[in-house]
């Protein structure tokens, strides 16, 4: 579904991603962990098409298409979804109208007509329930005055509505209390299928107890320095990242 080859990217002339290789197949859940500032959000941004990042080397294929050639909106319509680490507030844009517009554009891309008001309402109710998202929030301005947790839950609500092929969750768990974490995880688990895939960026092993990943990768200084299965997450939890930093440094000096 997603193939990243030797991806290098910079922002404001600063090299951030220094050769990422990653393959994600349908039905898989990948976790990406790593210390602050290692480039996790940057990777997510480059994949979603944030324009202040320049890709300097490498390529990315998504469902066989050259992802880097597409505008952010076309990536989304092709089924890529980024749950933002810091969802912004947009006063004056109603949550529900925004979703209606987004869904209509994604459906149009697939050659489908927009849902009528009734069908849309039914879908919205169903998904609200799935992620236990407060109906009151649905009708408010996009994220305006939402608590940190409400914003994160809104991202998952949108994910549920738009049914993407590949979802990237950027630290959706940070700022969530244990109940909210459970709800979000439950929602994601229900949405998991043979046909879609998830990349879960997180700091904590905690989330991975609920959403069990197939693979765990450690991103450090713009590279994936270690990959493994869910046991790797436990090891990181115990030992921290310092031993990996050492390893990475040794590797760098021996090259």
């Amino acid at each position: 579904m997603l193939t990243i080859k030797n991806l290098h990217a910079e922002v404001e002339e600063k090299q951030i991603l220094k050769g990422i290789n990653l393959s994600v197949n349908a039905g898989e859940v990948h976790a990406i962990m790593g210390p602050n500032g290692s480039g996790k959000s940057s990777l997510a941004s480059v994949l979603a098409g944030r324009e202040n990042y320049q890709v300097t080397q490498g390529e990315v294929f998504f469902s066989g298409l050259n992802l880097l050639d597409m505008s952010p909106e076309v990536r989304a319509r092709e089924g890529l979804f980024l749950a933002f680490q810091y969802p912004i507030e947009i006063p004056g844009v109603s949550n529900i109208n925004f979703l209606k517009t987004a869904l209509a554009e994604i459906r149009a891309h697939k050659g489908l007509p927009p849902l009528d008001a009734k069908e849309f309402l039914r879908l919205s109710r169903e998904k609200q329930k799935l992620v236990e998202f407060d109906a009151q929030l649905v009708n408010r301005s996009l994220n305006e005055g939402f608590s940190g947790g409400e914003k994160k839950r809104n991202e998952i609500f949108q994910l549920a509505m738009l049914e993407p092929k590949l979802s990237i969750l950027d630290e959706t768990d940070s700022g969530l209390d244990i109940d909210a974490l459970r709800i979000v995880s439950k929602g994601v688990n229900k949405l998991r299928s043979e046909n879609n895939a998830f990349i879960i960026i997180t700091h904590y092993q905690r989330l991975l107890e609920y959403i069990v990943p197939d693979f765990v990768h450690v991103l450090y200084d713009g590279r994936i320095v270690k990959s493994g299965t869910k046991e790797l997450a436990l090891e990181l939890e115990e030992k921290g990242y310092d031993w990996l930093k050492e390893e990475a440094r040794e590797k760098a000096t021996t090259i």
Partner: peptide, 18 residues
């Protein structure tokens, strides 16, 4: 706001519509 534009586009909404 570039941030707001990107958020909307990242949900599939075209630049002009956004």
């Amino acid at each position: 706001s570039e941030e707001a534009l990107f958020y909307l586009r990242a949900r599939g909404i075209g630049e002009e519509a956004a």
